[in-house]
Simulated scan of single mutants.
Amino acid sequence: MAVELWQPMQNNQTLHGVFMGDLFERPAVHETVDTLLKAAAEGRLEVVIDRTFSLKDAALAHEHAETAKPLGRIVMKP
C-alpha cells in the first residue's frame, strides 16, 4: 500500500506506526486493530486534553509538561 506523505510533512504532522509482524495474523490482534481503525474512521476516538495555555505562556506550558506529568495533551493557542 502506498501512502502520500507530502501533505502531512508540509503541515508538520506526525505519523506513528507499529510493526506487529506475525502477531497481526492472530485473530484477536487483527480484530482489535480493525476495531480501532473503524473507531478512528468514524470519529469515535477522543483526544484527552490536560490543559490549554495561551501561546504567550509557552514557558509555563513547557514547565507543566516537564513537571506535572500531564494526563493528556497540552494545547497552546494564540
Rank of each mutant, 00 (worst) to 15 (best):
residue 1 M to C: 10
residue 1 M to Y: 09
residue 3 V to Q: 13
residue 6 W to D: 04
residue 9 M to N: 06
residue 9 M to S: 10
residue 9 M to T: 07
residue 9 M to C: 08
residue 10 Q to E: 15
residue 11 N to C: 14
residue 12 N to M: 08
residue 12 N to T: 04
residue 14 T to F: 05
residue 16 H to C: 04
residue 17 G to H: 12
residue 20 M to Y: 14
residue 20 M to G: 11
residue 21 G to W: 10
residue 22 D to Y: 08
residue 23 L to M: 13
residue 23 L to V: 06
residue 25 E to R: 02
residue 27 P to N: 03
residue 27 P to W: 05
residue 29 V to H: 09
residue 30 H to T: 00
residue 31 E to C: 03
residue 32 T to P: 01
residue 33 V to Q: 01
residue 37 L to H: 07
residue 38 K to Q: 11
residue 39 A to S: 13
residue 39 A to D: 09
residue 40 A to R: 06
residue 41 A to I: 02
residue 42 E to L: 05
residue 43 G to P: 14
residue 43 G to R: 10
residue 44 R to K: 10
residue 45 L to I: 09
residue 46 E to V: 11
residue 46 E to D: 12
residue 46 E to T: 13
residue 47 V to S: 09
residue 48 V to M: 01
residue 48 V to L: 00
residue 48 V to S: 00
residue 52 T to I: 11
residue 53 F to M: 04
residue 54 S to A: 15
residue 55 L to V: 08
residue 55 L to E: 04
residue 56 K to V: 06
residue 58 A to Y: 15
residue 59 A to W: 02
residue 59 A to F: 04
residue 62 H to F: 15
residue 64 H to Y: 05
residue 64 H to P: 00
residue 66 E to P: 01
residue 66 E to G: 01
residue 67 T to H: 13
residue 68 A to T: 04
residue 69 K to N: 04
residue 70 P to I: 01
residue 70 P to N: 06
residue 71 L to R: 09
residue 73 R to A: 08
residue 74 I to P: 00
residue 77 K to M: 14
